[in-house]
Nucleic acid binder design. Structure first.
Lengths: 270, 270
DNA sequence: CAAATAGTGTCTCTAAGACAATATCAC
DNA sequence: GTGATATTGTCTTAGAGACACTATTTG
């Protein structure tokens, strides 16, 4: 009878066909667009980071940052490494949103993608992001259901506008999956991945756990509120938001300055 | 300049190393253990389906059903196919719980696992499950934190008892990940996978969406309650459960029979 | 009738939403 | 002072938990 050691020494892992495996990252930022009035609080846009592909396939199309899993790393490590390499950003944390494995999803062959959504603060983007990449750009995100019941994903950046159209494929375990009707020029099935990421985030941002990761260590309560409102596309009265969040935060003795109105106390996550 | 068509015709996907990819399934069942008293409602145990490995590595150890992704199928299809092949069960739906990709997790080499939890009704198990496999057995599950803060996963079936020990590694996005201290005899990292599945289910079973999948089309409200209580390991007063669930169900005009007490109305998911 | 679950009604408490009112800064 | 956001307090309402009580079956 063969021992396990003998079995392993004779085992040929390349006997069967294997797929290539990638990690793709939906990096989101809550972007505040300063208005002319110095006193007015900024509008908040949800932005997603896309890179313009320099190589075939989908050369010159916009795509999510990401790349191939290499030996010795976990998929999560791969996602972080690729984000760093392609965009010079280092997300605090990334959240898995699904595996995309339809056989025909990549014209190069059998390639399955592990998608993550990453949550990046505007500050860290301003500090170090994007210096090496004019082919990496933040696109404003709109994602809404239209009158036909289809979903429109509109990504816009300066003079570029990508309009993808999707339908709801399935709703299971509170998670919606989408099928792409029109890619809007996005590479691969990345419209589907972005739609899945937004849908999952909107669903999960009810739990405060997630939204803290969008912000630096110290934050004002209205910044926190802005994140939840922007992700979920809702509006909450400040007084009520404060009450709800109060159990999840600890106050510091620091305040904001120079905002043109009463300073706000900074808080930390409890 | 090279066209996309030329690029693809020259593209060598086997230029880089690729991992093998598997799907593993944590198939759970709410098992009711009939007591001697004909009137008494049955106790409820959560059970997980394990198969005894006939081959190296981990020969004769218990493992989750699962197997390799083959060309032309999605990972979800692979999970369903492997469940059917190894256990003759066809889950109504399977829910992804994570990708396990630590490089050293499989002694055969670079193999990453996509884990699913499947939700199987006791009826369908009694109908068709398990006929081809005496090496597939349902193990009663206990999963609890002990006094040290570690988690004990105890799987028992007849005379076999597997005791795994895990520690909490990280808690992110409301999801806990575990590290295995002691496999308890389970193959590979399957103790970690089962712990992740139970942790996610306990967290998500607050949303009624999930628990409906544990039951046939028509069910009594107390059966529904039993499922939620068993998964979450909690206890709810029947009167309050009925009020909470009332918006999610539609009553039928059918009733249970012969239970030794007042018959219960059957309901459907709304 | 007894034992057991099915199902109803009601009280209390908590948390969320609406809204009024006050506080404090930059200009 | 003015206009903006920050912060507090209070009223109302919706929903969860506790619990008492009634209904209906089988043996």
């Amino acid at each position: 009878m063969q021992s396990e050691k003998d079995f392993l020494s004779e085992y040929r892992i390349d006997k069967y066909e294997r797929p290539s495996v990638t990690a793709d990252i939906v990096a989101l930022m809550i972007r505040s667009t300063k208005s002319g009035n110095y006193r007015l609080n900024s509008e908040n846009n949800l932005s997603v980071l896309l890179v313009k592909r320099g190589e075939h396939p989908f050369k010159n199309h916009w795509a999510l940052p990401g790349g191939f899993l290499v030996p010795g790393e976990t998929i999560e490590e791969c996602a972080l490494r690729e984000t760093k390499e392609e965009t010079n950003l280092q997300p605090v944390s990334i959240m898995p949103i699904g595996v995309f494995s339809k056989p025909e999803r990549d014209p190069r062959g059998w390639i399955i993608s592990n998608a993550y959504v990453s949550i990046i603060s505007e500050e860290s983007v301003n500090q170090k992001g994007q210096d090496d990449a004019e082919d990496a750009q933040w696109f404003d995100v709109e994602f809404e259901q239209n009158e036909n019941g289809d979903y429109r994903l509109c990504l816009s950046c300066c003079d570029v506008e990508l309009n993808a159209l999707l339908t709801k494929k399935e709703e299971k375990f509170g998670r919606t999956t989408f099928a792409v009707k029109n890619t809007g020029g996005l590479a691969f099935d990345h419209a589907e991945i972005i739609a899945a990421a937004l849908s999952i985030l909107r669903n999960d941002a009810k739990n405060f756990d997630i939204i803290f990761d969008f912000l630096p260590e110290k934050f004002t309560l209205s910044a926190l509120q802005r994140v939840q409102e922007t992700i979920m596309n809702i509006s909450i009265l400040p007084a009520n938001f404060r009450r709800k969040i109060s159990g999840y935060v600890i106050e510091t003795d620091e305040y904001t300055q120079g905002a043109g109105h009463r300073p706000a106390k900074l808080y930390r996550k409890k």
